[in-house]
Design a protein around this nucleic acid. Sequence first.
DNA 1: TATGAATGAGGATTCATTCAT
DNA 2: GATGAATGAATCCTCATTCAT
Lengths: 205, 205, 205, 205
Amino acid sequence: MLRRNAIVAAALDEFAEKGFAAARMEDIARRAGVAKGTIYLNFNDKEALFEAIVNQEMRPNVEALASKVAAGGSLRDFIHETLLPLVGDLARTRRGVVVRLLLSEAGRFPKLAEVYYQLVIGPALDSIRTLLQAKDRGELKAMMLLQFPQLLVAPIPMAVIWTGLFERFEHLDVERMAHAYFDFLLGEKPARRASSRKVRKARDE
Amino acid sequence: MLRRNAIVAAALDEFAEKGFAAARMEDIARRAGVAKGTIYLNFNDKEALFEAIVNQEMRPNVEALASKVAAGGSLRDFIHETLLPLVGDLARTRRGVVVRLLLSEAGRFPKLAEVYYQLVIGPALDSIRTLLQAKDRGELKAMMLLQFPQLLVAPIPMAVIWTGLFERFEHLDVERMAHAYFDFLLGEKPARRASSRKVRKARDE
Amino acid sequence: MLRRNAIVAAALDEFAEKGFAAARMEDIARRAGVAKGTIYLNFNDKEALFEAIVNQEMRPNVEALASKVAAGGSLRDFIHETLLPLVGDLARTRRGVVVRLLLSEAGRFPKLAEVYYQLVIGPALDSIRTLLQAKDRGELKAMMLLQFPQLLVAPIPMAVIWTGLFERFEHLDVERMAHAYFDFLLGEKPARRASSRKVRKARDE
Amino acid sequence: MLRRNAIVAAALDEFAEKGFAAARMEDIARRAGVAKGTIYLNFNDKEALFEAIVNQEMRPNVEALASKVAAGGSLRDFIHETLLPLVGDLARTRRGVVVRLLLSEAGRFPKLAEVYYQLVIGPALDSIRTLLQAKDRGELKAMMLLQFPQLLVAPIPMAVIWTGLFERFEHLDVERMAHAYFDFLLGEKPARRASSRKVRKARDE
DNA sequence: TATGAATGAGGATTCATTCAT
DNA sequence: GATGAATGAATCCTCATTCAT
């Protein structure tokens, strides 16, 4: 169903630029190269379009995460092979936009927050817990992460938010930030690099 | 000026519940106990109302933060006296709602993101950098935080997002989470406590 | 395009009855037999509707006037074949309403006055001057009209205004008035007729 | 009642600039140097303000006209002493604005047209008829004016309209135009003068 | 009397959704 | 299936009018 995918992609772009309420179905249709009515052949309403975006863009990531955990590696491997790529992915692709979009609109669409929790957050945290219980009992960082596995992924919301809102005022290399964070978590010494701080134009305006 | 504050408070409540676009001026007015037209005696339009919220709710916090840094204590004191209370505050008061609201709508109102950066984020990061440069050169965590001071406050967006979106599905004690995080950053041993994980109703529905 | 014409016609009726500002888009739509939104498929806003009226109702008349002059007849023929019918037309059709409407609203819509001048008034006066310069140099009336060609059409605003505002108080046969005026201009003796003065109801109320 | 007069004057200015519907009571108040509420101490509503303008600005003129006629002079004297000055007056003072305003809004306020007819138009035409019946029976122009006394004042609406709408596109010396017209009516030879036609900027834009 | 803050009816405009073609 | 003209509910904002001070 190429037609359907084109509509979802167009909707994501429009929602990302304007937000859910301010995005116009007509603009989505034009961007997808179809007529307004065609959208309604595939989706009941605007909200259904939103849910389709979440499903289409997030499900693959979560499934990848779950299978990585099921494959059973070390925490270190999990971080390097899964979490770090995920941060880069969110920073560079439209998936990051989906996350921000969700933050924006979840309040208005409670079902959406629930879907996201059931589909993404809950399983992801379960994966993390499983991993930690298997490997790292007793250490300080493991204790912290067992109680609050959310902390393992704390750089993710920070990265998504910074990229979306503040990047144009001050650059932040979110992948290196995540790298530094995970190195610290694992007690490893990071490679020396130049500071990532570069103040941008808007700051001086 | 009481009237004006009542309107801003009502607007915050409505925006928090419905989002910026979906909030109706009439509902804001009713909640504030005034007539529709009265809002327009105080604010040019809906957007001006939004800016007033950001200014009114965020400025005091930032100034407090800056003065704490200016007063010049240790990183540990700063964390305990400023950051930890801030997390609790954001979790329990409407200020957390303001932050989420801002995440939601900043994309649509670029000026708002800029105001927020100039007023809140930029100064806060500067404060953190100042603190770190004065005190903690050379240590691993300091190196990380000097390059990425955002990591010092990484629990904040996580806390705000969790409280706003997922708390009803799974409880997270964000203050204790922050405590655990800061203990780990400072290399201190946390007090033992029961797990904070309590699955809530929505999970079983 | 029928739809569009129906809207313009309905708008003219409503504007004529209520004036520009007081006419409601909803009433125009109802009168045109369409929904409110349909108007906006054809016209950007209320003002565009107004401009469409002027163009649609006035352009044909002006073009007829110009072609009459280009055809090149005598002043007498021009008066009898063009101006006299014009007066009757303005008195009896909606074109008169357009003129009054324009008088009403031109102050508020400077572009409208300009359009009307460029499209109607300027060309009409040019036509009159051309006619006079070709035919009637040297005579008293021609001297007057060459300097002030507006005087040739002085009965027109009078006719339009009377018909629109005072006809219900006192009848005025504007066509015969124009006839008498033009006869006088041309130095011809008018046919005797009964007085056109008939006091109407409102006078006695 | 200086206060009252200031309000009427301010209202005239605002109505003249914006039209009746678009003029804001607040602007009228500000221009008059009073508070909004003060207007309502003197006038029941916006419409009453309009009527006050007509009465205040037009009544003196009409009474002057009537008394001139009662004094009983010749048609020539009437023209020179009353009509010509009236044209100049309407062209240069706010009284011309009142006339245009009336043309604009009379359709919406039928009572206003009636008041104007009863107060101004009817008496003026009666005066003209009285004058003509006493003096000039039998001549061609008199026959025309007896049947259509409106023609005696035909330059007036033309002058008012031109001044208000088209003057900025093409200059017209309305007083000289009236002079030429009345000379022609009276069969007198006008003094030679330069053409009054001067095309203005807007024409070339 | 005079004020101007407050009111709320009113209306232009937008846009999700429908449906005849 | 696909279209896009048509619909009309929804909502922001204005401003004439009121009234407590």
